[in-house]
Design a binder for these strands. Structure first.
Length: 431
RNA sequence: GUGGGCGUAGCUCAAUUAGGUUAGAGCGUCUGGUUGUGGCCCAGAAGGCUGGGGGUUCAAGUCCCCUCGCUCACCCCA
């Protein structure tokens, strides 16, 4: 691997031509599911003011505390490579006055996100997410549609063994009571939980729930459940969501310990995970964030959305044994046998391309053997050979590479004859 | 951020039990196999400061240290 010279930065990946079909497949499936639900595409800058994430993502999150790529630009402004998509989308909603549009405003995006973390399988410092946000409507039917969008996309991609975990974190009014209950519950057990968790006890008690360490899990098994602290409205919201998920035939598991790592969630939180996944295997996750917009200094704006890692989706496609499509190859190869054929080759190729036929050319005169070897290696189905004989006669030799006799066609008929051969019809050329 | 494994041509791997001459092969690439015809086959070539740096030794791809990178687990997330 590391040959001399420059290497890409740690935790980044090159996406090579061979990877394109799989990647495009994800984007196409996602765009289709979005279109079917009237989600519209949006894209926002790769970097934003640091303040957006400090306030939006939340100062107590790991993301903000130790994972952001933050730098001062030459003008002295603090900027940050986005570590997630949601705050940018809410910011764009506010900045463009999308409250004048029919609500909810439903947006989707595909974007690179950056987090400084130790790379491992399924975890990169730059990864890519598909995501969607529905802004301006608090109804649980919107939550259901957002979850359905991600679920359906993954199903369309052939990954059918994933599990949906859901929970409700309640609203700001009920949160203090629940938080206090957690603290009251865990404090007597403080000596039995890990050091991290002891810190969480004061910093962010909700996160005590999803610690995977056995001692902590033992303790938290009997911990108070957020559902028991929900207000009537939040309870009804969650019940309706689960009913609608049932109507959509989306099986979901109630996970009392699902808390998510972002500060802004209220009510609905969800995650989609593979059957035997570990912590870093989450394929996608999201939730409702009705108070994020206010946190950013705007008017009240309910919202719900998700993000899902494209690299992890692809990992799961491979895990379940799905084959990816082959890369595109040209249909035709045009081969000059002599310098005098170069002009003809160029114009023939241009004519084919105008007719929509993918065409590769030989860029220099060479022997038929070497040209045909190359044509074969490239995967072309038809070779068009132009040598001195053809140039003089104003014709080209058309050779089907899958077998069959080669024919000699007039320059004016090259496009139609080639298309006929590609379509599997008789060539019509005179031999 | 914490711990473990690994690092030889573009790729997959070799390199004779405690180190020993010009580090090999297959695949791939390029060029040829007389006269204008591919796939198979044959031949040849290109391609490595053995990730990088330092150390031990008469001698290091092989041993030691550092560093970079990959990888696995933890953590966290997508």
């Amino acid at each position: 691997m590391p040959s001399p010279g420059l290497q890409r930065p740690r935790g980044t990946a090159d996406r090579l031509p061979a990877d394109a079909p799989a990647w495009d497949g994800v984007l196409r499936a996602f765009a289709r599911e979005c279109r079917l639900r009237n989600f519209q595409p949006i894209s926002t800058p790769t970097f934003e003011t640091t303040e957006l994430f400090d306030k939006g993502t939340g100062a107590t999150t790991d993301i903000v505390q130790r994972e952001m790529y933050t730098f001062d630009d030459r003008g002295g402004d603090s900027l940050t490579l986005r570590p997630e998509g949601t705050p940018s989308i809410v910011r764009a909603y506010q900045q463009h006055g999308m409250h004048v549009l029919p609500q909810p405003v439903k947006l989707y995006y595909v974007l690179p996100v950056f987090r400084y973390d130790r790379p491992q399988a399924g975890r990169l410092r730059e990864h890519h997410q598909i995501g969607a946000e529905a802004l301006g409507d608090p109804n649980p039917a919107v939550d259901a549609e957002v979850i359905d969008l991600l679920w359906s996309t993954l199903r369309a991609l052939g990954i059918s063994d994933l599990a949906l975990h859901v929970n409700s974190l309640g609203d700001p009014e009920s949160r203090p009571a629940y938080r206090a209950a957690l603290v009251a519950f865990f404090t007597p057990h403080a000596d039995k939980i890990c050091a991290d968790c002891q810190q969480r006890l004061t910093q962010n008690p909700l996160r005590l729930l999803d610690c995977k360490k056995p001692p902590c899990e033992r303790v938290s098994a009997d911990a108070p459940r957020s559902l028991d602290y929900l207000g009537d409205a939040a309870r009804e919201h969650f019940d309706t969501l689960r009913r609608l998920l049932g109507a959509l035939d989306i099986p979901c598991t109630l996970d009392h310990r699902l808390a998510r790592g972002l500060d802004y969630y209220n009510r609905t939180v969800f995650e989609i995970v593979p059957p035997h996944g570990s912590a870093q295997s989450t394929v996608g996750g999201g939730g409702r964030y009705d108070y994020l917009a206010e946190t950013l200094g705007g008017p009240h704006l309910p919202g719900v959305g998700f993000g899902s890692g494209i690299e992890r989706i692809l990992l799961n496609r491979r895990r379940v044994g799905l084959e990816e499509a082959a890369t595109h190859v040209p249909d035709v190869y045009v081969a000059p046998l002599a310098d005098a054929a170069l002009t003809v080759v160029t114009t023939v190729a241009a004519g084919l391309r105008q007719a929509g036929v993918a065409t590769e050319v030989g860029y220099a005169a060479a022997s038929p053997r070497s040209h045909l070897r190359r044509a074969n290696a490239i995967g072309a189905r038809v070779a068009l050979i132009v040598g001195n004989r053809e140039v003089e006669a104003g014709r080209v030799t058309l050779k089907p590479l899958g077998g069959g006799d080669q024919v000699d066609v007039a320059l004016d008929d090259v496009v139609s004859s080639t298309q006929a051969v590609l379509a599997g019809r008789a060539t019509g050329g005179d031999a």
